[in-house]
């Protein structure tokens, strides 16, 4: 019975999103960028490491977007730089959500002193700017693509945990949760049977928030040079910024791709949150 209802409401949420022009524009933007990143490496005209001309040469016949700071083809590097960015962004969001779920639920249903201590730690840690926390992690482990994902995930764990905690606390005060407690369900059963289904809508919205934030953080940190040497859009901007006056394409193209992608993700997330809220009101 409840699954039928859930399917009905998720279908109506999707219908609502399809009728929202801003949300549709966001979905299209995401599809274009993701397709570019996935198909890119296969259709790139050169090898991403090949030198095709002098550094920062302007666009010409063979190299439509000119060359970068090392003399590589900007189009080729661009087409190869999206996969890592997307994968790291998704990884960072997944890690933040997983860790946030663990801490958040623990802070809602564990014994009183533990609960209080966790809540106090969360309130303290969210004061530190997220990027600063990520830098601390990168400094400790050294810059590499894996560290980047861990740094972004840990940087966002506490804000996520706070949101999850608030939602889990609401469930913990519901009658059905108290009933589960009374009939002696163990903590694992309570988490999987009562808490998780109860906070599912919050988790869904939070996933959207974390994806946007995680892509922003990945882009910023790899722009700062902490991506660990992989070809990546943020890194391209970092490397080519000095040649902005002579060969703007090497910087502007990745900037525009990142901007379009982040705006699209934000549009989808916003549309989904609106549709979900409307569906819940019914």
């Amino acid at each position: 019975m409840s699954t039928v209802h859930a399917e009905h409401s998720s279908a109506s949420t999707l219908r609502r999103m399809a009728r929202d022009p801003r949300c549709v524009a966001g979905v299209l933007g995401c599809i274009v960028i993701v397709a570019l990143a996935l198909i890119g490496p296969a259709v790139a005209p050169f090898d991403p490491a090949a030198f095709v001309g002098p550094a920062f040469s302007p666009p010409s016949g063979g190299v439509p977007l000119g060359t970068d700071h090392l003399g590589r083809d900007v189009l080729t590097v661009t087409l190869n730089g999206g996969t890592a960015f997307l994968a790291q962004g998704i990884g960072g969001a997944a890690l933040a959500l997983a860790a946030g779920l663990i801490f958040g639920i623990a802070a809602a249903i564990s014994a009183r002193p533990v609960r209080g201590a966790l809540a106090f730690a969360m309130d303290s840690m969210v004061i530190v700017p997220q990027i600063l926390l990520s830098l601390v992690v990168i400094a400790a482990f050294g810059a590499s693509p894996t560290t980047l994902v861990i740094a972004v995930g840990l940087g966002q764990t506490m804000p996520t945990a706070r949101v999850i905690r608030a939602a889990a606390l609401r469930v913990a005060h519901e009658d059905y949760y108290l009933a589960a407690l009374a009939i002696g369900e163990n903590p694992v059963q309570r988490v999987f049977r009562e808490i998780l289904p109860g906070i599912a809508p919050t988790v869904l919205v939070e996933l959207g928030v974390r994806l946007t934030a995680s892509f922003v953080a990945i882009a910023s940190l790899s722009f700062l040079g902490f991506g660990g040497g992989s070809i990546e859009w943020g890194r391209m901007i970092h490397d080519n910024q000095g040649g902005l006056a002579i060969q703007p394409w090497a910087t502007i193209v990745p900037v525009v791709l990142i901007a379009v992608f982040l705006l699209s993700v934000h549009l989808v997330r916003d549309g989904a949150a609106r549709a979900l809220a409307e569906a819940m009101r019914r």
């Binding site: 946007t212 922003v216 953080a217 882009a219 910023s220 722009f223 901007i237 910024q241 902005l244 910087t251 900037v255 990142i258 901007a259 982040l262 705006l263 993700v265 934000h266």
Partner: peptide
Amino acid sequence: SMPEFVIAIA
């Protein structure tokens, strides 16, 4: 939606 550095570079 934008990271700070995108706005700064723009």
